[in-house]
Structures are given as C-alpha cells and as structure tokens.
C-alpha cells in the first residue's frame, strides 16, 4: 500500500500514467456524452408540465453535482497535502479549483436560463441557488488566496486549510440557506426508494453525469501534467521528457 502510494505520488510515474490514461478517459467521455445528449435531447419524452425546457437538466444537474464533488476532491487533496505534503495532491487541488468554479458557474448559468421561462425571472434568492452562489465565492476565495501567495508550496498548504474550513462550512451554509428560503423543486433523483423521475429521463441524466465525471478526470489529468512540468522544470526527468518529445 505504501509503496503504491509513493509510486503514484512520484511525479515521473504520474506523468507517464496520466499521459496513457487521458485518451481513454477522453474517449469514454465523448462516447457517453454523445449517447447521453442524444437520449436526452431526442429520445426522452417531454415533460408534461415543463415541456421541452426541462431538457436543460442534462447539463444543469450534472454540473451542480460536479460543483460539489470537485470541492470535496479539493478538500481531500488538501488533507493529503497537510498530512503527507504530497506534491501531486497540491497540483490536483490547484488544478481542480478553476474547474470546480466553472462547473459551479455552468450550474448557475443554466439554472438561470431555465428559471426565466419557468419562474419568470433570471434569478431568485432560492436556497439552492444561493448556496451554489456562495460555493462559487468559496472557489474564488480559494483561487485568490492561491494567487496571492508567491511560494507555490506555501500556497498549497494555505489553500488546503481554507478548503477544509470550506468543506465543514458547506453543509452548514447549505442548510442555513435552506431554512432561510426555499422555492427550488425538491431533489428528484436522490430519493432512492422511488425516484420521482421517469426511467427514460433518468438514464440520459446518469449518462451525462458519468460523462461530466470523465470530462473532469480528463481535464484534471491534462492540467496536472502541464502544472507538473512547470513546477518540476528544474529536475532531470522533465529535461528528459522535453528532449524526447
């Protein structure tokens, strides 16, 4: 286990492994996204209340899921940074932040596009929207702190603390906002016993969620590879990689 840990944490090994994984992950993402979009946009029936505009959930819901998932990834990577000082975890947290912020922004933007015909306004101070907005602020704070600290390794530890504080606070923020105001429709998929969504709508949604996960993994690995080269540019293995390319 520990050997594996060190091997995986070694920049050189990770660089090669990530290089080999990226085409597979990217390919699987493309296939799932194509199938998911086809099923979602053409095969799934239209909603009896919301008509065609509900179809935005195939982008909206996976982005909202990813916005939270990425933050948890960042906080977990932050834990690894604080405990073991693994360089790779620093890079994963750092590359994840702008990705998570983009997912959050996408969730907000699509939600707002959907809200205009459905609720009649671009924005409502609804609980989930608000907590998603605050999540976006948390991502911005993370990136601002990282940018403000010159030394990358110090920045990684500082942002790791911030992400851990954030991850404890997110549920508190979410529920406080929830009690404060609620207009958003309830969760439809996570009610495990009887999902209140039809199977023909659920399958494309889950496919899209998987595609988003794969997209995140692909872009994360690509970003991590670049970041790794830049941070390790003085080492011999990077010189070798550059020479062989």
């Amino acid at each position: 286990m520990w050997i594996w840990f060190h091997k995986f944490g070694s920049p050189r090994y990770f660089y090669d492994l990530a290089g080999r994984l990226i085409p597979w992950l990217g390919g699987a993402c493309a296939v799932l996204m194509a199938v998911g979009l086809y099923l979602g946009l053409f095969v799934a029936p239209s909603d009896y209340q919301q008509g065609e505009s509900y179809r935005i959930i195939y982008i909206h819901v996976p982005s909202a899921w990813m916005s939270m998932f990425v933050y948890v990834v960042m906080a977990s990577a932050g834990t690894v940074v604080l405990i073991w000082r693994v360089k790779l975890a620093e890079i994963i947290a750092s590359v994840s932040a702008p990705l998570g912020a983009s997912f959050t922004f996408l969730a907000l933007a699509t939600g707002s596009l959907w809200g205009k015909p459905m609720w009649g306004t671009w924005w409502v101070w609804d609980a989930r929207l608000t907590s998603e907005l605050i999540l976006l602020f948390l991502y911005f704070g993370f990136m601002a702190l990282e940018a403000a600290i010159e030394d990358k390794r110090t920045a990684a530890r500082a942002t790791a603390i911030l992400s851990l504080v954030g991850v404890i606070n997110i549920p508190i923020i979410h529920y406080s906002v929830y009690w404060w105001n609620t207009l958003h429709q309830g969760a439809t998929v996570t009610k495990m016993d009887t999902p209140s969504i039809h199977l023909s709508m659920l399958i494309p949604l889950l496919l899209m969620a998987a595609a988003f996960q794969l997209y995140y993994a692909t872009v994360l690995l690509m970003g991590a590879r670049t970041e790794l080269l830049s941070r390790e540019r003085r080492t011999r293995w990077v010189a070798e990689v550059i020479r062989n390319s």
């Binding site: 602020f137 601002a144 702190l145 606070n169 508190i172 406080s176 906002v177």
Partner: peptide
C-alpha cells in the same frame, strides 16, 4: 491567519471570510 503574512491581505481577507459568515448572518 491565512493572510497575515501577505502585504495586501485586506480585500483578499474579505473574499475568503464573507462567504463563511453567511450562516451567522442568516440566523
């Protein structure tokens, strides 16, 4: 604690902290 070593921490501090103040403000 996170920003004390930075020369211009002021605005950054509010960016980091204000989102975390939300629950207190709400209640």
């Amino acid at each position: 604690g996170l920003t004390v070593g930075l020369r211009r921490g002021g605005v950054l501090l509010s960016l980091l902290i204000l989102p975390l103040y939300v629950p207190v403000l709400i209640f």
